[in-house]
Amino acid sequence: MKVDELKLELNAALGTTQVASLCVQLIDQLVHLDDAHGQMLTYTSLQKLLNYPEIDTPLVSAVHFLTSSRYALLEAHGQLIDDDGDEYPLEDVDFNEVLKSGFLVHPGTGEIVIDAKDKVMPYFALSLPKGLEWAPK
């Protein structure tokens, strides 16, 4: 599948909506990223990539659609930034548990993280579907 075909299918799935438009704009920007720059994408970096004014509901929805739908190009991950400012990438099973219940054991100290959802930052890596013709420029 070519990227243009993907965008057409995506538009058909979402209809004429702001979220669809943002998804297409995101794809247009993501296509320029090489592997090195596509591994640690945050909501903020995606916002900047679009030169979009703020992280709002339509932008989050577009990022999420590109993460969870049949047209997903992004793979979500989680990172704990603890009270000392230290960063810990989370194992998938731990990230899932935070998503489900808000429960997290600190990967470094083994202690329960209070208000874990305030300290876990989702981020994304490009994860292209097989067969998608994707050529970073």
């Binding site: 903020t44 992280i55 989680g78 930034i81 400012g85 989702p122």
Partner: peptide, 8 residues
């Protein structure tokens, strides 16, 4: 942090 938390 400047990054967006799961709560947000």
């Amino acid at each position: 942090t400047a990054e967006t938390s799961l709560s947000q």
